[in-house]
């Protein structure tokens, strides 16, 4: 049996939404290099809807796949819906992750939430 599901490998080999949004409305970065995983999410939001999302990830195959899947799941969604994204949903959408890799999906959820919080903060400041 392979280490990862076909879905994980697909998102790892062909990650969706890779890159940077220079004029992002919200940016979130979680994880640390010491543990071997860092995820950074960039959001472009218009009328409370996520118009575009990009990510950069330093990490293992499942970290890259989780980032990719998470961005796909929130793209085009209202901010209120994106806030409800759970790591479980990300892992399920990837047809599961090995137990010791579940933290990668947690990181993806946290990265999205961190970017959304940054967006809310910036909104209040304006």
């Amino acid at each position: 049996m392979a280490l990862y599901s076909e879905k994980v490998m697909d998102h790892f080999r062909n990650p969706r939404n890779v890159g940077v949004i220079e004029d992002a409305d919200g940016v979130g970065e979680v994880g640390n290099a010491k543990c071997g995983d860092i995820m950074k999410m960039y959001l472009k939001i218009e009328d409370e809807v996520i118009k575009d999302v990009k990510f950069e990830t330093f990490g293992c195959g499942s970290a890259i796949a989780s980032s990719s899947m998470a961005t796909e799941m929130i793209k085009g969604q209202p901010v209120s819906e994106a806030m409800k994204l759970t790591n479980k949903a990300v892992a399920e959408a990837l047809d599961g992750l090995p137990d010791y890799k579940m933290h990668c999906s947690v990181l993806a959820e946290e990265a999205i939430k961190s970017a959304l919080e940054d967006y809310e903060k910036r909104k209040q400041q304006n």
Binding site: F12, R13, F58, G59, C60, G61, A63
Partner: peptide
Amino acid sequence: EGESLLLLLDDKGICASSGSA
């Protein structure tokens, strides 16, 4: 990170290993 490096090398037909966590 080493694991993603290994997976992509595997795709290129190279079997290697890493000391990554």
